[in-house]
Design a protein around this nucleic acid. Structure first.
Lengths: 157, 157
DNA sequence: TATCGGTTGTTATGTTGTATCATCGCCCGA
DNA sequence: TCGGGCGATGATACAACATAACAACCGATA
């Protein structure tokens, strides 16, 4: 399980690692991590909170004046297709993927108090999902598991 | 587990039951199922597919000319608060709750081919969710579980 | 009958996401 | 070297989803 939020950490390092991994994965896959896409990925990673597309746009526009909504949505779509970010449906917002490169299903713990989202990977949970769908004869394409509440730190405070 | 979609059924009866139950629950709870709210509930129930708020608005406006977006969103908010409908976050759409009256967590199987959504109630899945959150010390307030794919019928066809 | 709270009316606006077509730049084959 | 094709980006417009803010109404009740 990743835990990006519970402890202070060197977030610049975090971002660098994510970008480096992204570059490697895109090279391997022979897809293009263009400057715009890379910049959008970096913007998303700068926050541990899911960020909205229009927030990304505002930031991107500082360095790229031609940026418009489609610019951002195209980059976000690309990054999602490559598994480099996830969309949090219940927030209409996007989050860097801490498990890029591993095939995995994403499950999120979203704190309503501090706004952070933590990606968890839980095999038992995944197995339970599979069992439930199998029973219905349902062919799964995408799983959205988003748990909202209060994180440990916010419960303390 | 409910199964609203796999078989043909008397959908009028379905709707009637839902409305009757809703009236009873609202009476018990001393909250008002006003004509607008009841009409919106009926509109949502007329489809087994999740319906968007503006689709509800279009339908509602046929019998209620003053209807505007806030009219619909207020009714939807009320119905969600009473557990009579659910919002499908990944579709920005709403679905009648087949388990109104029982406290339950909602989990959905959403067919991308035919558009129907089936609400499932699966204790094992729920337990796995609880275990995962407990491990993180996370206090759950809301669980969103939405599985998209292809339903059994659409796989056959 | 005065007023209080909950519901609805009304207007406007905010937020999120797409459609469409033009243009650019690069690679590759003739 | 030319030019055709294709993926990426530019640019404009619009569609879809949701809320803010304040006014008006209406029934219950002191």
């Amino acid at each position: 399980m990743t835990n990006q939020t519970a402890l202070p950490h060197d977030h610049e390092h975090c971002i660098d690692s994510a970008l480096t991994l992204a570059r490697e994965l895109c090279t391997e896959r022979a897809v293009k991590l263009t400057p715009i896409r890379e910049k959008v990925l970096e913007i998303v990673w700068r926050s541990h909170k899911p960020v909205g597309a229009y927030d990304v746009l505002d930031t991107l526009a500082r360095s790229h004046k031609a940026a418009r909504p489609p610019t951002v949505y195209r980059a976000l779509d690309f990054l999602m297709a490559e598994g480099l970010i996830h969309k949090i449906e219940s927030l209409n917002a996007y989050l860097g993927c801490g498990e890029a490169g591993h095939a995995h299903e994403s499950q999120f713990l979203i704190c309503r108090t501090c706004g952070t989202a933590e990606e968890i990977v839980d095999g038992a949970l995944d197995a339970a999902l599979d069992a439930a769908t199998k029973r219905s004869g349902f062919a799964v394409e995408r799983k959205v598991v988003e748990i909202a509440g209060k994180c440990r730190r916010c419960q303390m405070a």
